[in-house]
């Protein structure tokens, strides 16, 4: 994959300021980087470093105060709220820390949700795509289960399937393993790595856990609204191997995806 020719995310001198009464808080203070198709980038930083603000802007939920953000060649700063919604719907996939699945709604319907807001898909096409996405995260057997009948890891897999279903140019994950134990976290990272390696999905993963970052190919570290480090990870850990190295447990675990 030729990185130079397939830049999908281009950020230049991004600023985001919030007015807190009299004071102006500079959450982002001149951030610039590019992400190419097929990259797996983690964004690290302590709380208050601006990583959530950055993710909100990358996710087209917020607009920068100044600077440009080109997503797939389109200047996001110039779009209206409605257009932004359309972009989130067609170009992005979100994975949240707290899964954010609709309660009392089956896994299948949760995954179908983004396509519901896209008139190009018929009910039949929605179902086909959702089933395919659930298969990709290894949940073919849990299609009609409700979120409260699924484990945390399984719920996050449903959320990942939901992020995949619209074939986004980029998947954004916000502390996606934050609510999970180490073993389940590694299982999720295994899935994420597989999506990146095998299916070539571009992934931006916000985390503050260094071991999660070690599974990615590149890590951008933020501090006080600025990038203090942007390094290619020379020693990418394999989540499957890390999982195997964990001390064995007695209870049966969810079948990892292979």
């Amino acid at each position: 994959m030729n990185k130079e020719n397939s830049v999908i995310l281009d950020i230049r001198n991004l600023h985001r300021e919030f007015k807190m009464g009299e004071e102006t808080v500079k959450a982002l203070n001149g951030v610039s980087f590019t992400i190419s198709k097929g990259e797996f980038v983690t964004i690290m930083g302590s709380s208050g470093s601006g990583k959530t603000t950055l993710l909100n802007i990358l996710g087209c939920l917020d607009k920068p105060t100044s600077g440009t953000y080109l997503l797939d060649g389109i200047d996001i700063g110039k779009l209206s709220k409605t257009q932004l919604a359309g972009y989130r719907n067609r170009k992005l996939g979100f994975v949240f820390q707290s899964y954010n699945l609709l309660a009392r709604t089956s896994a299948l319907e949760n995954v179908e949700l983004p396509l519901m807001y896209n008139k190009d898909f018929s009910a039949k096409q929605r179902k086909e795509k959702a089933l395919k996405a659930l298969e990709a995260v290894g949940l073919s057997q849990r299609v009609h289960h409700l979120p409260n009948q699924l484990s945390g890891g399984q719920q996050q897999r449903v959320a990942i399937a939901r992020a995949l279903v619209n074939d986004p140019v980029m998947i954004l994950a916000d502390e996606a393993t934050g609510n999970l134990d180490t073993r389940t976290s590694y299982e999720i990272m295994m899935l994420v790595q597989e999506l990146n390696d095998v299916q070539g999905k571009t992934i931006v993963f916000v985390t503050h856990e260094p071991d999660i970052a070690s599974f990615s190919k590149r890590t951008i570290t933020l501090k006080d609204g600025k990038i203090i480090k942007d390094a290619v990870n020379t020693n990418v850990q394999n989540a499957k191997e890390s999982l195997a190295s964990l001390p064995p447990i007695d209870e049966e675990i969810t079948n990892p995806v292979t």
Binding site: R90, F96, N100, N166
Partner: peptide, 16 residues
């Protein structure tokens, strides 16, 4: 509220 936030984040417009 949270459901609305989620729906919006995955592409629901205000009108939706």
């Amino acid at each position: 509220t949270k459901e609305i936030g989620l729906r919006m984040s995955i592409g629901a417009r205000g009108i939706d």
